[in-house]
Design a binder for these strands. Structure first.
Length: 326
DNA sequence: AATAGTACCAACCGCCAAATG
DNA sequence: ACATTTGGCGGTTGGTACTAT
């Protein structure tokens, strides 16, 4: 037989969490760390299933979560990554450690999707180029176009990965940088959980050693580490101050993902957020964030390329060459 | 002020791969 | 090797807040 069931299906509470439940959950995780969700309902007395506990923690209670309005930078990052990765919200969220996949997904569904549709219909009369227009191309033509764009992107990628030009590290204004050193400073943290966040202060000051039985770093563990580790280090923000002079020009991706309309009023930030810049922020982040393996990125790109056709494989493998520049 | 329509988002659902007994 | 559960993910929904009439 397999494992015992995590919780009885009967008597499991559903619906919104109460502050009392939140405190119970946070107190437990404060002591034991965010692991072994199966044991959480039993040990806390919560009438919730383990899944619900995990979800509540990862999407709402976990320290370092930033709530409230998305910045232009974040918006652009999401748009670019969505175009690159598709609806892989967890993957996208791994590049915005302060945002949850659920948050990003919601934001996409409620804001960005509509925005893009609007843009798409606006462009229908002028199918010059761009992602929206390319979707209307015949498949073969579209793939050809995409191949060309990937080739152009490769060059930008090489530049970005060049040691002489650590420009991919720049791009975020310190004010809206996603990797704020102290999440508690965020004024947008849900007011309804202020009591919880006070509890979390103690947890952050003295975080438990999570029992990392899994050698693979999951998104959540990555997020947890980045959020907690960064607390003790003020490199978090300072390392990510923008230096617009050294930016990689995103022309390659402007042609691949044509979002000029979003950038019109923020020309400086539009330049500062090429997909590489976004993607490699995580790579070049010090400490915990640098732990995001490059192979993961390769895999995503590889998968994306494979789904478009094997012709892209050659292009994608060139990413390996780029990686070797490290 | 009351009502209807819309937007937002927390939480649930179902599926899948990995883990485990 | 197999059966079963866990953990993780993306899609969807229901309740609530907000806005327009």
């Amino acid at each position: 037989m397999g494992r015992p069931p995590c919780c009885d299906k009967e008597g499991v509470k559903k619906g919104p969490w109460t502050p009392e439940e939140d405190i119970l959950l946070v107190t437990y995780i404060q002591e034991h760390g965010p692991a072994n969700w199966r044991a959480v309902p039993t040990n806390t007395g919560l009438l919730r299933c383990s899944k619900s506990c995990r979800l509540r923690w990862t999407n709402y209670l976990r320290p370092g979560i930033r709530r409230g309005n998305f910045t232009d930078q974040e918006e652009k990052t999401i748009i670019h990554l969505q175009a690159l990765l598709g609806n892989r919200w967890a993957a996208i969220a791994s590049y915005l450690p302060q945002r949850t996949d659920n948050d990003i997904k919601n934001y996409w569904n409620t804001h960005l999707n509509k925005k893009l549709k609007k843009l798409q219909t606006g462009l229908e009369g002028h199918p010059r180029d761009g992602f929206a227009a390319s979707q209307k191309m015949p498949r073969g033509q579209w793939e050809k176009r995409l191949q060309t764009d990937i080739h152009t992107a490769k060059q930008a990628l090489r530049e970005a990965l060049s040691p002489e030009k650590p420009s991919y590290m720049s791009g975020s204004k310190s004010s809206d940088v996603c990797y704020s050193a102290n999440p508690a400073q965020s004024s947008t943290y849900a007011s309804s959980t202020e009591n919880i966040s006070r509890l979390l202060q103690g947890w952050k000051r003295n975080p438990p050693k999570p029992s990392q039985t899994n050698s693979v770093m999951t998104q959540n563990s990555f997020n947890n580490m980045s959020s907690t580790d960064s607390v003790s280090s003020d490199q978090g923000t300072s390392s990510w101050k923008s230096n617009d002079k050294d930016l990689i020009l995103p022309e390659a991706f402007d042609s691949l993902f044509c979002f000029e309309s979003f950038d019109s009023s923020h020309s400086d930030t539009s330049q500062s957020m090429s997909p590489e810049a976004t993607l490699f922020q995580a790579e070049s982040k010090p400490d915990s964030c640098a732990q995001l393996p490059f192979s993961l990125l390769e895999k995503w790109l590889f998968d994306e390329g494979a789904s478009q056709g094997k012709d892209f494989l050659n292009d994608i493998t060139l990413l390996d060459d780029s990686a070797n520049l490290f």
